Amino acid sequence: MKLFASDYDGTLFKDRIIREDDLHSIRKFREQGHKFGLVSGRSIDSLKTEIEKHDIPVDFIVGINGGAVETGEGEQLFIRMMETDIAHELIEAVENFGVKFYGANDGYRLSRVYCSDDVDDCFKPNINLVPMDIMLDEGVSAMYVWVGDEDRAQTLANMITEQYGDRGIIAYPNVHSVDIGIKGISKSTGLEMIIDHYNVDDTVYTIGDSFNDVPMIKDFHGFVMENGVDEVKAYGKAVHETVGYALNAVLKDIQ
Rank of each mutant, 00 (worst) to 15 (best):
M1G: 00
M1E: 12
K2L: 15
A5W: 13
S6E: 14
S6Q: 15
Y8K: 11
K14L: 12
K14W: 13
D15P: 08
R16C: 06
I17E: 15
D22M: 07
L23P: 08
H24V: 06
G33A: 06
K35H: 12
F36I: 00
F36H: 06
G37M: 02
G37A: 00
L38S: 05
G41D: 02
R42K: 13
I44D: 03
D45E: 14
L47H: 00
T49M: 13
T49H: 09
E52N: 10
D55F: 14
V58L: 05
I64Q: 03
I64G: 01
G67Q: 08
V69C: 01
E70Y: 13
E70Q: 10
E73D: 14
E73I: 01
E73F: 05
Q76R: 13
L77C: 01
L77S: 02
L77K: 02
F78W: 03
I79P: 02
R80I: 01
T84I: 07
A87L: 08
A87N: 09
E89P: 06
E92G: 03
A93K: 12
V99C: 04
F101R: 09
F101V: 02
F101D: 13
D106K: 05
L110C: 01
R112D: 09
V113Y: 11
D117M: 07
D118Y: 15
D118H: 15
D121K: 15
C122M: 12
C122T: 08
N126R: 12
N126P: 14
I127S: 01
L129D: 03
D133W: 08
D137M: 12
D137T: 06
D137R: 15
S141L: 03
R152T: 05
Q154S: 08
Q154W: 08
T155L: 10
A157M: 10
A157G: 07
M159T: 02
I160P: 01
I160Q: 06
T161G: 01
E162H: 14
D166V: 04
D166K: 11
D166H: 10
D166F: 10
G168I: 02
I170H: 08
P173C: 00
V175W: 11
V175P: 02
H176G: 00
V178R: 12
D179L: 05
G181A: 02
G181R: 06
G184L: 03
K187A: 04
G190I: 04
L191E: 11
I195Y: 13
D196I: 09
N199C: 07
V200L: 08
D201L: 06
D201I: 07
D202A: 01
D202T: 00
D202L: 03
T203Q: 13
V204P: 14
Y205K: 00
G208S: 05
D209R: 00
D213G: 03
P215D: 07
K218A: 07
F223V: 05
M225G: 05
N227Q: 10
E231T: 08
K233Y: 06
A234W: 11
G236N: 09
H240V: 06
T242D: 11
G244M: 03
Y245Q: 12
A246N: 08
N248D: 15
A249Y: 14
D253M: 11
